[in-house]
Design a protein around this nucleic acid. Structure first.
Lengths: 348, 348
DNA sequence: CCAGTATACTGAAACGTTACAGATTGCCAA
DNA sequence: TTGGCAATCTGTAACGTTTCAGTATACTGG
């Protein structure tokens, strides 16, 4: 039994099977090969024939069968976005998907989402994609300095782009937000408000941008002559409750910070709750600078200072990078770094 | 250009080529047909042969080539999630994707995300999917009472599930949140706090759950003897700024509401900002009940009353529904409605 | 011992596409 | 005239899978 979804109620006049090259060949009186080549502007096809074929193809709405192409050429016309189901930020998932689809929209590419969970080796989904040849290009996030996934794909010649940089001496496309600059700007903004005992809610330990953030923080601290109040018990990967509780603990200590920098909006909500749990007031007892990817934090507490990170842009850049690599561009030329916005106070 | 690693027949088992049925046939000394049938437990294959083939297949990690299957059978092993790039909630996108992938994880299905934008007819992406046979099943959101997409897929015999119900007298799988109950509970909770002039921030006009919400609101109003303060100038589709501004306008009027019900967390942030812009205080001058899909609102303002809607569950249910339909179950048996949680106050 | 039949397996064809190796034509130089 | 060559076009095979229509063997009942 053939399970294909063809129209059952074929009342729509003119028997409308999906047109194939054969259909086109029959209609134009040409051979299948000629039609195939005409559609892709091959030089050995006469100019008039080419135009004629393309016209007819457009008229009847010919669309190449993906399975046929894929079987024959190995080209899948698929980009896969690999996501961690526990730890990715909601805003990240949503925005990056839209960023990618925006770029992909007028190409033949489809976006497939390949998830993996905490329990799994992050290399698993990548290995699956490569082994089964399921995608022409891959986008990964939560990039590590020494990232086995990047190494693996490089070894197997699969085009990919990483959200975040690596540090393995290997060159590949990436898009990254300049978290070194972010942390630095944040420190300077707090220093400008007279804050000089600063704590940092870090990105997940182990990811590359953890390092950039920490380094930017440290360098700017000594630049402005402020000191760090260590806060290593949490990162933005922790739950809201954990961050809240530990922030409260921190803020009840005598040597509490008077400035906090947070690497993600969700964590910031918890941080502020923790500050208030400890009976302190934002803007008076402590200032907080936070990254955010959508304009929510100023609605939350207008005393917050924010820096915007555009995940939609990240998605677009990553998509462009993978497509570029697939198209044969130099991987080294497909790297981009986006600068943080100013540190923004509330503007009524 | 042939992108494959080699093009020689792979009957020499030494190579690192991806194993195919031919490889398996060579290794077992059987015919390709027999191997194919053995792998799918066809009855006309001897028990021992079957076991042997399956063992070898497992050993060498055979995985059917998706393009081959798809070309031959038309089965894509793809579920497509159709999303609006402007109006979907961030939490919705993220959670529903994870819900779907959770269910799909141990099936051969892949999830592809098919976007469409404001400017496009929502039917476009669906038509594309159906015409090109790109998916075995489709999930759509932002469902309307009379939904052309549902009608179209029904006509074309394509399995799908909708997030939200329709009202066309046609039966199809869906998952919905009981917004009638939500609005009712919200009204009763506000009434219990002595609020009796209530406003509603509605879902987008035109979507089915707009009606359920409005009806639940209206019925409960007359049940508790409260009155409605019309607030038709915004819906949760409006921007944060618009909602904030119009809420402020509303709250500056003499006949302002003393209770507001909001259909989405993001809108609620704006509503609260608007309330405060008007110089009023949450919990004293006005109470707000809001739906949310993650625990953020109580961090935002502890005076808020919340009702939780689980989008991850929605994703799972929708995926289960489509897969069920594909597997031949009755569409009518694949409908589910999830009841709202209690109206929850802040619990320290 | 034979036809009949159940059991276990098999080759060939087809899905739609592209690459390869021709095939046909017309034209020009020798 | 002949051979060569450029310009166009074409048939066949192959990608990996499933289905159709078998084949070969062994076993059954009469």
């Amino acid at each position: 039994m053939d399970r294909r979804i063809t129209k059952k109620g074929n009342d729509d006049a003119s028997g409308k099977e999906r047109p194939t090259l054969k259909t086109l060949a029959f209609m134009t009186g040409l051979g299948v090969t000629t039609v195939s080549r005409a559609l892709k502007d091959a030089p050995e096809i006469g100019a008039e024939t080419r135009r004629r074929v393309q016209l007819v193809a457009k008229q009847i709405g010919y669309r190449p069968n993906r399975a046929g192409v894929r079987l024959r050429t190995g080209k899948t016309n698929v980009i896969s976005l690999v996501l961690n189901t526990e730890h990715e930020l909601m805003s990240f998932v949503s925005d990056i998907i839209y960023g990618v689809t925006e770029v992909i929209a007028d190409t033949p590419y489809h976006l497939i989402v390949t998830p993996y969970s905490r329990s799994q080796d992050p290399l698993d989904p990548v290995r699956y994609l490569v082994e089964t040849g399921s995608a022409d290009g891959v986008i990964i996030s939560r990039t590590q300095p020494n990232d086995p996934r990047a190494r693996y794909m490089l070894e197997h010649g699969v085009p990919f782009a990483t959200h975040g940089r690596t540090d393995m001496g290997l060159v590949h496309p990436y898009h990254d937000f300049d978290n070194y600059a972010f942390a630095g700007e944040a420190v300077r903004a707090l220093a400008a408000k007279g804050r000089n005992r600063l704590a940092l809610v870090t990105p997940p330990v182990g990811l590359t941008y953890f390092r950039y953030t920490v380094n930017g923080f440290a360098d700017a601290l000594s630049e402005v002559g402020a000191s760090e109040v260590p806060f290593n018990t949490v990162s933005i990967d922790h739950t809201i409750e954990q961050i809240r509780m530990r922030t409260a603990q921190l803020m009840r200590r005598d040597d509490r910070p008077d400035g906090i920098i947070s690497s993600a909006a969700a964590a910031t909500l918890a941080v502020v709750a923790g500050i208030e749990d400890a009976g302190l007031k934002l803007g008076r007892d402590v200032d907080v600078v936070s990254k955010q990817s959508s304009e929510v934090l100023h609605l939350f507490r207008r005393e917050l200072l924010v820096v915007n990170e555009d995940f939609r842009l990240a998605g677009s850049e990553l998509a462009r990078a993978v497509l570029g690599w697939i198209a044969g561009k130099e991987p080294g030329s497909l790297q981009s770094l986006s600068k943080p916005s100013e540190v923004l106070p509330y503007r009524g």
